[in-house]
């Protein structure tokens, strides 16, 4: 009875071919079908931004998309950034500025920041704040995240 649809989705450079139910949310596909647990789910109605990933370079909520809708797309998740031993400059900046506490919302912020700094490599504090406005964080009050985004920009310019 349950219809399954073939999809071919590239995630972090690896092509995954899977058969999925049309209703499978992209967030569940990434987390549970592919086992990439860095993408988190906080609200499943497109408000909190924890599940933010890049789809063909553009930040998107993965909880308000069906996996079948992005068949053929190229997706990047937090796992595409640095490793524990060698973090991405944005990740380093988040650590240095104490821009995370529980860390649950953090991957969403990181992916939003990746896209933002590509378009604006030298943001003001106000621009950085507006850029992260679509991501919820309950722990930090956002101030350190704003500073981290600016610090990341500096680090990336220096690289």
């Amino acid at each position: 009875m349950t219809q399954k649809v073939k999809v071919a989705i590239t995630v972090n450079g690896t092509l995954y071919e899977r058969e999925v139910e049309p209703r499978l949310l992209l967030s569940d596909f990434i987390r549970h079908d592919l086992g990439l647990k860095g993408t988190h789910v906080g609200c499943e109605h497109g408000l909190c931004g924890s599940c933010t990933v890049l789809i063909d370079g553009l930040s998107s909520r993965s909880c308000t998309l069906f996996a079948v809708m992005v068949d053929g797309s190229d997706i990047k998740t937090v796992e595409s950034l640095g490793t524990m031993e060698k973090m991405h400059p944005i990740q380093e900046a988040f650590q240095e500025k104490h821009a995370l506490q529980c860390g649950f919302c953090t991957p969403g912020f990181l992916m939003t920041t990746v896209e933002f700094l590509e378009g604006n490599p030298n943001p003001t504090a106000e621009e950085a704040r507006e850029a992260i406005d679509g991501n919820f964080c309950r722990c930090t009050g956002y101030e350190n995240i704003v500073e981290a985004v600016q610090l990341a920009a500096k680090k990336m310019a220096a690289d």
């Binding site: 933010t52 789809i55 553009l58 930040s59 909520r61 308000t64 998309l65 933002f116 679509g134």
Partner: peptide, 9 residues
């Protein structure tokens, strides 16, 4: 309209 992540889709 909402935020960038929504406008991208």
């Amino acid at each position: 309209i909402a935020h960038k992540q929504i406008r991208n889709r």
